[in-house]
């Protein structure tokens, strides 16, 4: 269920990503800011309010869906002892379907784990890119100071310039509309898979409960 919603979200993202190309609106998915770094004005594209709205709306949809599912599950659990007209338990009616569905915990092929892994990779790409750029920026700040103390101010300044360029290049890489869209979408995928895991755990527990009741 969760994955089905996510599939719809992906269709929305895939088809409507270009709607976010309008810039300098507060609902834009990216924002362009100018920051004085190193005495100069540098232009940066950062995640905008639109990205937050996008992620929040997606998470909200999934969350509400999860709540609905949980209520359905709770209803199932409350009726787990009940028998139908043929005096059979639910597990005796559905056979092994629910039970075996809950047992899907073996290693799955690439189509099963690739979306989640790829989403995690995308998130990790942005996070590690940011960390790496910050480290390089710190080096670009610290190295001239050390060089001044050592009496090599010119060399230090030149190294700092190079490091700044590298840092800004890294920061700017993939910081556009598409990058932010897949970043936010990746967050949704990861969140959806976490909910899906909970769902599977619930189904497994439910099946175990059914089995226990049936064997009682």
């Amino acid at each position: 269920m969760i994955l089905l919603l996510l599939f719809l979200l992906s269709l929305f993202v895939w088809l409507g990503a270009r709607l976010f190309e309008v810039r300098n609106h507060w609902t834009d998915i990216v924002s362009q800011i100018t920051i004085p770094i190193g005495g100069e004005l540098e232009k940066f594209i950062i995640p905008g309010i639109g990205l937050v709205i996008f992620v929040a709306v997606g998470i909200g949809i999934l969350y509400v869906t999860n709540l609905l599912l949980q209520s359905i599950y709770a209803a199932l659990v409350s009726q787990i002892h009940l028998k139908d007209q043929t005096q059979k338990l639910p597990i005796q009616l559905v056979g092994a379907s629910v039970h075996t569905d809950a047992m899907n915990e073996n290693i799955e092929p690439v189509v099963a784990w690739l979306p989640l892994r790829l989403a995690k990779w995308v998130i990790g790409f942005f996070v590690y890119k940011l960390i790496l750029a910050l480290i390089i920026f710190v080096l670009a700040v610290v190295i001239p100071i050390i060089a001044n103390a050592l009496g090599a101010a010119e060399t230090g300044r030149m190294i700092a310039e190079i490091l700044k360029e590298v840092c800004f290049t890294i920061l700017r890489y993939a910081m556009n509309v598409n990058g932010m869209v897949i970043f936010g979408y990746s967050i949704l995928v990861v969140y959806a898979y976490s909910l899906y895991k909970i769902e599977r755990i619930f189904i497994r527990d439910y099946a175990i409960m059914q089995k226990q009741i049936a064997n009682r």
Partner: peptide, 30 residues
């Protein structure tokens, strides 16, 4: 049944792979 039901049905596989489309498209656009 465990592998077949979750993985091997065609709609299930297509859905899972469709999740990759925005990601791959975004990555390729970058």
């Amino acid at each position: 049944t465990r592998r077949r039901r979750s993985v091997f049905s065609l709609p299930g596989s297509v859905i899972r792979m469709a999740l990759l489309i925005p990601l791959l498209n975004g990555i390729f656009s970058i």
